[in-house]
């Protein structure tokens, strides 16, 4: 759900127009029901062996949870993701800021971050494993490497979009350099940082699973591959569903609320 819709809903509720809220919710619920029915139908049509139905998928998920595998592999994957995310944000912010501030940095790097963005994640993964061996250092290196160009590009755009006239305004009224930075520059860059984090997370999910499939013996990617080897379709579905739920939870419980708090003032999101 976009912030715009969320705000519309709030406004509607405030005005007592309750019929708009159930409509938006009921459409989503309806789409969920249709999806579940289609899933079940496909499962009957193509047999449970190829398309496990919702019941058997969630049963498999329950088994994984009870056996402790779910939490173990999820934890490992999350740790790799968070470490790489932090590293990629750091590297991306340093490079993006330098490109935004200095013309020479921009001219010498702009092509290479674009190139970095287009090289398939698989290449970074293979090279990292060949350099450092099949270990977690290589995993974090590969994920960071595949992710930071997208972050750098967003930060670069953000730094370039800073309005120097607002900085001048603050300076005229006597704001210290620290105050100009924290109260005038950072708020202008924040939307771009959020976008950078979004892009970064989107890439990180995909690369991490691939890394685990290729060179690690734990994590969700590894377990997906294991289920593939066993031709256990219910487990493949279970891991995929679980992954999707976790992503949704991060989006709805962390990213959206942060965004809403930070950007309440923005007309383009509001309207």
């Amino acid at each position: 759900m976009s912030v715009a819709t969320a705000r519309k809903l709030e406004a509607g509720a405030a005005r007592g127009l309750l019929r708009r809220v159930p409509e938006a919710v009921s459409i989503r619920l309806a789409s969920l029901v249709v999806l579940a029915v289609a899933w079940q139908a496909a499962s009957i049509l193509f047999t449970e062996r190829f398309v496990p139905g919702p019941a058997s998928t969630f049963a498999a998920l329950w088994d994984l949870a009870r056996g402790g595998e779910l939490i173990k592999h999820f934890g490992v994957t999350m740790a790799r993701m968070l470490a790489s995310f932090a590293a990629a944000m750091l590297v991306g912010m340093v490079i993006g800021t330098a490109m935004g501030l200095y013309r020479r940095a921009e001219q010498s790097l702009d092509m290479w971050v674009m190139v970095g963005l287009t090289i398939p994640g698989l290449c970074y993964i293979i090279v990292s494993f060949m350099w450092l061996g099949l270990n977690d250092r290589a995993a974090v290196l590969a994920i960071t490497w595949a992710t930071f160009p997208a972050i750098a590009i967003n930060v670069w755009q953000g730094v370039k979009a800073i309005d120097p006239r607002l900085i001048d305004m603050a300076r005229v009224f006597g704001a210290s350099a620290w105050r100009r930075t924290t109260r005038v520059v950072v708020p202008q860059v924040l939307p771009y940082l959020m976008a950078a984090a979004r892009f970064g997370l989107g890439i990180i999910w995909k690369v991490t699973v691939l890394v685990e499939l290729l060179g690690r013996s734990d994590g969700i990617g590894y377990m997906l591959n294991y289920s593939f080897q066993m031709f256990d379709m219910a487990d493949v579905f279970a891991w995929t569903i679980f992954f999707t739920l976790v992503m949704l939870a991060i989006e709805l419980a962390i990213l959206k609320p942060i965004e809403r708090r930070l950007f309440m003032w923005r007309p383009e999101i509001r309207a």
Partner: peptide
Amino acid sequence: EPRLLPWLTVRRNVEFALQSE
């Protein structure tokens, strides 16, 4: 141009200058 900080309310914009001074 007005050069207001768009993320602050009108009051907070005035306060920004007061605090800066």
